[in-house]
Computed example of a mutant assay.
Amino acid sequence: MSNENIQTIDVALGQRSYPVWLGRGLLDDNERWREALRGRHALVISNRTVAPLYMDRVAKGLHDLHWSAFLLDDGETHKSFANVAHALDALAALGATRDACIIALGGGVVGDLAGFTAACWMRGIDFIQMPTTLLAMVDSSVGGKTGVNLPAGKNLVGAFHQPRAVVADIETLSTLPDREYRAGLAEIIKGAAIGDAPFFAWLETNAEALAARDEATLMHAIATKVRYKAGVVARDETEQGERALLNLGHTFGHALETAGRYTTLLHGEAVAIGMVMAAKLSERLTMSNQADTERLEQLLKAVGLPAALPDGSDPDKLLALMRLDKKNVAGTLRLILWRGIGHAEIVTGVDEDEVSAVLREAAWEEG
């Protein structure tokens, strides 16, 4: 097959470096991705929505291996310890050895759970990310963050475990529902908001084309975001400093997801709202100005994303959930805020009263 339109973006981590391949037809290009499989066992983890669409393509590349599949039900609620246990049982039934490989075929939930399972089996085996959602392509499939949810909060259990490769076939986006597609755009906007003001301006100019799924525009946006994240991960793999900036909006967003029991908001929608809350808090702390907050809100709305708290949000409950965030230190809030578009920073010891005031004002506005 012709591969001249495939882009390769390297995540530079020394001996654990790996490629992110981006383009059309990559699931069928098994000569490329089979090089990342080192043993004779493979477990494909997917879900019951994605597997009927794309499992056959992946299976053609596994015809000479001992392999099986483990399928999740669709949705964030299924990123659980119970399903990790079932996936580990599937590896045991396969007779998987230490050179086995897990293939994550799906969105962020599948990728996170598959990666965590790979980190656990025999203290760590290979895995390959094959993201089928925009959000997974531009964010969760790159960087090695894996994990599962608890009732108390999202991603409270996990491990850093880098994939052997990321196979981002944009053909899979053709079956992605509009709401899921828009959720992925939130992560692209987030990358620009954190550290790339010119890219943010480009997104503003091209918002209509992005919302309409123009392929050339989308390819540029995906590649730009992945290159940005790959650079951050290479410099700070385990989130000791700069990588924490990638969590802009996530402390608010994870609290919103948890409050809704992972059923009311998609992750990207929660991040979109969370970014606006972070911008408003930054404004309240005199770190940024109203004009940049308004530009962020307008761009999110232009691509069809929410920018306000859901009706009925409880500020006290959200603040309590934010206290459980993994980024907090010594019992105090540690948030990612900004000094305007393209200039995010880590802020420690944030006064809870200020956070509460922003949440209450936002809830009042929506009420």
Rank of each mutant, 00 (worst) to 15 (best):
residue 190 K to V: 01
residue 204 E to C: 02
residue 211 A to T: 08
residue 209 A to F: 07
residue 180 E to A: 13
residue 189 I to A: 10
residue 203 L to Q: 10
residue 216 A to Q: 15
residue 187 E to M: 05
residue 206 N to V: 00
residue 219 M to R: 15
residue 190 K to Y: 00
residue 227 R to P: 03
residue 200 F to W: 11
residue 226 V to T: 11
residue 232 V to K: 01
residue 210 L to A: 06
residue 205 T to I: 11
residue 218 L to N: 10
residue 180 E to H: 15
residue 231 G to V: 11
residue 206 N to S: 05
residue 210 L to R: 04
residue 181 Y to M: 09
residue 193 A to L: 07
residue 223 A to C: 03
residue 180 E to Y: 11
residue 220 H to P: 11
residue 192 A to M: 10
residue 227 R to E: 03
residue 185 L to N: 10
residue 182 R to I: 00
residue 203 L to G: 08
residue 193 A to F: 10
residue 207 A to R: 09
residue 219 M to I: 09
residue 217 T to R: 15
residue 206 N to F: 04
residue 203 L to I: 10
residue 184 G to C: 14
residue 215 E to R: 15
residue 232 V to L: 06
residue 210 L to Y: 08
residue 221 A to N: 15
residue 209 A to Y: 00
residue 218 L to R: 03
residue 179 R to K: 12
residue 227 R to Q: 05
residue 184 G to A: 08
residue 217 T to L: 01
residue 183 A to E: 13
residue 212 A to Q: 15
residue 211 A to C: 12
residue 193 A to R: 13
residue 229 K to I: 14
residue 191 G to I: 03
residue 205 T to W: 07
residue 211 A to Y: 15
residue 209 A to W: 07
residue 202 W to K: 05
residue 228 Y to I: 03
residue 191 G to T: 13
residue 182 R to D: 06
residue 193 A to I: 09
residue 199 F to T: 01
residue 195 G to R: 08
residue 179 R to I: 02
residue 229 K to H: 09
residue 183 A to T: 06
residue 225 K to W: 02
residue 188 I to E: 12
residue 230 A to K: 04
residue 200 F to I: 01
residue 201 A to S: 09
residue 185 L to P: 12
residue 200 F to N: 03
residue 190 K to L: 00
residue 181 Y to H: 13
residue 231 G to N: 10
residue 231 G to Y: 02
residue 205 T to E: 13
residue 229 K to N: 10
residue 188 I to N: 08
residue 182 R to V: 00
residue 222 I to H: 09
residue 207 A to K: 02
residue 192 A to S: 15
residue 232 V to M: 02
residue 180 E to W: 07
residue 191 G to K: 10
residue 182 R to P: 00
residue 221 A to I: 06
residue 185 L to Q: 01
residue 179 R to T: 08
residue 215 E to T: 15
residue 223 A to R: 05
residue 213 R to Q: 14
residue 184 G to H: 09
residue 192 A to V: 00
residue 230 A to F: 00
residue 193 A to P: 14
